[in-house]
Design a protein around this nucleic acid. Structure first.
Lengths: 344, 344
DNA sequence: CTACCCGGGACGTTATATGTCCAACTTAAC
DNA sequence: GTTAAGTTGGACATATAACGTCCCGGGTAG
């Protein structure tokens, strides 16, 4: 059933809306029966005429009786409604969660893929695919795409495919090296994405953890400067989110820094910034490229992260995320985000 | 998944057609890619414009690529198509079988409910329900409904429910007693149907197996005569089908008659007529009421019978059935009818 | 009896889907 | 290089379905 719904979501997206509408109508009739069109239509937020159309249809399907005293469900209607209850819980699950998260996190759009990254390995691929599709939808109006590192981003790269618009794109790393393993470094991923999309790309090789002086002189280097200016003018930023401590360890951070993160209660990390539970920046990795201030609402920010274990990290980052953000996550993280919110 | 499809069949009937259409389009694109609109539209029997509408939609869903060299499936399209194949086998199963049987048996309409009467007890109830719904669809233009006996008919009676039109109906037994147990006798069922539909009814009590003389005098009796004339003018006839030998035994037929049936290779029985494999009448129970000749095309005949074991009987009767017949059966019988037909 | 709510008929309006035709472009063969 | 046959995509008139709006007659409760 899961796959059937999944397929239908793609193949007949608005039919599910119709199904939901009719489900609501049946439900309300059951509760309010016998009931007339007028009172029903206000309860359902439908105009009287459209409600009438639906009711005529339901009557033709023998699901409702229409008497002069009002409408009631037929036995068959009750039966169908019973079966629908179970189905709807599943159908509406994802849609509803997407809307809930949209409200909760105050962002433009939330996309949820079903499953749990932590448990089922191919769910991360689904995340990547969803992200690739989402990118595609508006990359004809964008030119420069900045991406970060991470295993999730690597999957995004895997899912990209070329089309006419994609060839005009330029991929750049969002920031200079921040200590990932080569495979998941931003530079590597940028290259892969560009290759998959048949686009151009620029890389930015800078040593990790620069000291203040070198940092300044580096930025004056013409070649570096040009790449940096491209990065700064990126139209779209794709990035993952990590668990703060896990990231810090993976990056071989110094003991002092680890302490700083611990003291600051850092839980989330995104492109080199560490956040605490309230979304406050605890620490930032000093490197070139996009800074938090650069995330203006004109830029499209796509945040990709899934898995129950990352829910806290996602929440921490999202507290301060611009509303132009699109969050792509999985069911497990979404559930955790929604539930966790009521028990802080 | 089964229940989901069942619900959708009721709640969004035309949606299955759309799904099938899009499935076909995807399938053809996969086979013929890269392919243009024109050649695709002729292959699919769609006008170019409608095909274009569908393709635009599929493109917006990222399922097909459109290049100037033609259309191809995207990776996602291939994936969806894969999942669809499995689903479609189930979705189209019933629809397709209905059409196949319509052709095979040369009747106006075939309705199949899923399951097997012989194995799952509630499938017979589903048959009854389906029959009741079908009757409802046109009983506002009919007045007299003749019904036969049998356990299936008893379930039809159970599923009836009253409405405005039903109160004007009159139920009559199709023929005089032909030896059923009381519970499943036509008279009993007539009474029950009338009660369920809040309609009127007439019964016809005649002794079984009349001899020629008494038969003649019986028909002259005024009260009987009136009922018989009502029966003859019935607008709708609802009847079941039985296995010939099983019916004969249940009716305590004489050894001579059993021999006659055996010799004639009788396999099916319907309202007192016994048929052989080719649809030839082997024997008819002599009684008053509707005779085979009365089944004119103006009358709506609804035949209800299910279960794998009855497939042969159904086929034998259907050979001579008028095209105004509506066959209501179950999946098991339908499969047997279709498959059995290729291995005679 | 009256006032209210009921379904359903009628009709003009609007949105959507479809039929039809053409222009610009790509590709492949010659 | 040129032609021919294929492709998509734009434009526009038209048919069709959905919808908004109004009203009527019939039940029903107060």
């Amino acid at each position: 059933m899961r796959t059937l719904l999944e397929v239908q979501r793609k193949l007949l997206p608005d039919f599910l809306l119709v199904m939901q509408k009719r489900y609501d109508i049946l439900r309300y009739i059951k509760m309010m029966q016998p009931v007339g069109r007028r009172s029903l239509s206000v309860s359902l937020n439908l105009t009287e005429r459209t409600l009438r159309g639906e009711v005529d249809f339901l009557k033709s399907q023998n699901l409702v009786n229409i008497f002069s005293s009002g409408m009631t469900l037929t036995d068959e209607g009750i039966e169908i409604l019973d079966k629908l209850e179970g189905i709807m819980r599943e159908v509406m699950g994802i849609d509803i969660m997407e809307k809930q998260l949209q409200d909760l996190l105050q962002v433009d759009e939330v996309i949820i893929v079903s499953g749990n990254c932590d448990e089922t390995p191919w769910v991360k691929k689904e995340l990547g695919k969803a992200c690739a599709n989402r990118m595609k939808r508006e990359w004809n109006s964008k030119n420069i795409i900045a991406v970060t590192g991470g295993s999730t981003m690597a999957e995004v790269a895997n899912s990209l495919s070329p089309d006419e618009a994609s060839r005009k794109l330029t991929f750049v790393p969002a920031r200079g090296g921040i200590g990932e393993a080569v495979k998941n470094q931003a530079n590597t991923i940028v290259e892969k994405m560009a290759q998959k999309a048949q686009a151009s790309y620029r890389v930015l090789y800078v040593p990790d953890q620069l000291s203040g002086e070198v940092y300044a002189s580096f930025q004056k280097e013409p070649a570096i400067k040009e790449v940096i200016s491209q990065i700064k003018s990126a139209d779209m930023i794709i990035h993952g989110i990590g668990d703060a401590m896990a990231m810090a360890e993976r990056r071989n951070s110094s003991p002092e820094m680890l302490k700083k993160l611990l003291d600051g209660n850092a839980v989330g990390e995104a492109f080199g910034y560490y956040y605490d539970e309230n979304g406050k920046v605890v620490h930032k990795v000093l490197t070139v490229g996009i800074q938090l201030d650069d995330l203006s609402p004109e830029k499209r920010v796509i945040t990709v992260a899934g898995g129950k274990t990352k829910a806290k990290a996602i929440r921490s980052y999202m507290k301060g995320a611009p509303s132009s953000t699109v969050l792509i996550t999985d069911e497990a993280a979404a559930q955790e985000l929604i539930q966790g919110n009521y028990t802080p």
